[in-house]
C-alpha cells in the first residue's frame, strides 16, 4: 500500500472517530476502542466505500474490525491498483 493510500485511510479513521489530525490510528481495534460502536462501524464502512470508490459486502464488513484488517483488505483487493503496486 502506498503512503498516499495509507494516509487517506488514516484520515478516514480520524474523521469517523473524531480524532485529532496527529492521532495514531494504526492500533485501533473494534474490540478495544470505545468509540467503535455499531454506528461507528457503519459510518466507517460508509466512509471507506466513499473514499476508495468501492462497495463492500456484508460478509466483508463484519470482518473489518481494525485499522490493520482494513489496510490488509484494501491491499489484497488492489484498491487504487496503481498506488498499491506503485
Amino acid at each position: 500500500m502506498t503512503d498516499q493510500t495509507k494516509n487517506k485511510l488514516e484520515q478516514v479513521f480520524r474523521a469517523v472517530f473524531e480524532l485529532p489530525a496527529d492521532a495514531d490510528v494504526q492500533n485501533i481495534r473494534q474490540i478495544s476502542f470505545r468509540k467503535w460502536d455499531s454506528l461507528g462501524h457503519v459510518l466507517l464502512i460508509s466512509a471507506i466505500e466513499s473514499e476508495f470508490g468501492i462497495h463492500l459486502e456484508l460478509a466483508t464488513i463484519v470482518q473489518l474490525t481494525s485499522f490493520e484488517s482494513v489496510q490488509l483488505y484494501l491491499t489484497e483487493n488492489a484498491v487504487d491498483r496503481s498506488a498499491v503496486h506503485g
Partner: peptide
C-alpha cells in the same frame, strides 16, 4: 461477541 459491528444498525 458480535457487538460493535454493523448488526445493531442493520
Amino acid at each position: 461477541q458480535f457487538r460493535n459491528g454493523p448488526f445493531g444498525y442493520l
